[in-house]
Design a binder for these strands. Sequence first.
DNA 1: CTAATAATTAGCGATCGAGCTAATCAACGA
DNA 2: TCGTTGATTAGCTCGATCGCTAATTATTAG
Lengths: 119, 119
Amino acid sequence: MSREPDPPELPTAPRLDETEQVFAALAHVARRQIVLMLSHFGDELPSGYLAKKLAHSWPTTTRHLHVLEAAGIVEVRREGRGSFYRLDRERVRRVVGTWLDLLEPPAPARKWQPKGKRT
Amino acid sequence: MSREPDPPELPTAPRLDETEQVFAALAHVARRQIVLMLSHFGDELPSGYLAKKLAHSWPTTTRHLHVLEAAGIVEVRREGRGSFYRLDRERVRRVVGTWLDLLEPPAPARKWQPKGKRT
DNA sequence: CTAATAATTAGCGATCGAGCTAATCAACGA
DNA sequence: TCGTTGATTAGCTCGATCGCTAATTATTAG
């Protein structure tokens, strides 16, 4: 059975811990700024460049980058003495977007009513 | 000039501290659960109902609700000895959604290049 | 080899967040 | 009035997070 050589774009629903990590990572303003900087650039940025912008010390930025990396939000490519970070836009969109979609009100908008009060 | 008597739905861009509060509030799984419960119900839920579901003590739930309220994500209505919480769906959608939209790549996808390396 | 640059790791102090129990407040029912 | 129920407030502890400086690693330049 050789239908598709590789499922190319099946955006599986985010796992629970994925959601956890991504939302936790995005909770800090510095990390959201990093994400936006990477996004605005479209490509990859070196660690030092980000560190300079962030009004924090470089090691602090490094740690934020680690948090983002652990959450799968960014990937790093090492070359020479440089570290180049790249945003996984899809992942952020998928995890956050999917969660946001859950906010749509369900069909008939059930209403809570006090227990044991029937009729 | 009487065009519209009242701007009915001008979703102003989220303020910076709004984004901060909302993202911080959504960073905790229990609070995201509360939001989803409220959303799924469509209407309002009493504090005790939420507390029972959450596998935490009631005071802990109370505090989570306060965080959500401070972020403007939920509103509370007191009646008798009950507290009824309601979700502000629009606010969540607006703040999170707007931020998510910033992730769209800008037009030509600029690329970073090392400084002082011209030509 | 040595100096300089890019980046991370180590480790510290301060603060914040989240959980709990106990105490308190407010409204209702008997 | 008195007890019960719904809910919050007070106060504590533990652990995680965040920021920093100093030290370390690794690569490149001279």
